[in-house]
């Protein structure tokens, strides 16, 4: 059985962490990652919501910022490897045609560990 663990926290709090505090959190997480290395599949850390854009499907409109409605729920996510934001939007638009309703939030990925075990490696760019 596959589960996703979706990470929520207040960005105003996490972005107020010093570099040392951030590193300390990452080091503590790393312990858990290692302990359950066989269970972890792709892991990623997203960039702040300030880097996000949102494609509103019904209007076919890209707006700045994260998707903030509370009426809908997060149902899944894709990871796409693209050249730039335009291409990410192009793919999102095609997905929107296939599956109208709601929105896609397009948020750049900060850290990406494709197989969940390459903790020591530098993250893919």
């Amino acid at each position: 059985m596959l589960y996703t663990l979706l990470c929520y926290n207040d960005e105003m709090v996490t972005s107020a962490w010093t570099k040392e505090e951030d590193a300390a959190v990452m080091a503590r997480l790393d312990q858990v990652h290692r302990k359950w290395a066989g269970n972890f599949k792709p892991m990623l850390r997203l960039m702040p919501t300030s880097a996000a854009t949102t494609l509103r499907k019904s209007e076919n409109l890209v707006v700045d910022g994260p998707y903030a409605e509370t009426k809908e729920q997060l149902l899944g996510f894709y990871v796409v490897d693209v050249d730039n934001l335009d291409q990410a939007h192009a793919i999102a638009r095609e997905l929107a045609v296939a599956n109208p309703g709601g929105a896609y939030e397009i948020r750049p990925v900060m850290l990406y560990y494709p197989d969940g075990s390459a903790i020591d490696d530098a993250p893919a760019a």
């Binding site: 300030s50 880097a51 854009t53 700045d64 730039n84 934001l85 335009d86 750049p108 900060m110």
Partner: peptide, 16 residues
């Protein structure tokens, strides 16, 4: 690198 990546993403977004 992660600061650079975030900055490049911001510039992409601004250019839209």
């Amino acid at each position: 690198r992660s600061m650079i990546a975030e900055a490049l993403a911001m510039i992409d977004k601004a250019m839209l």
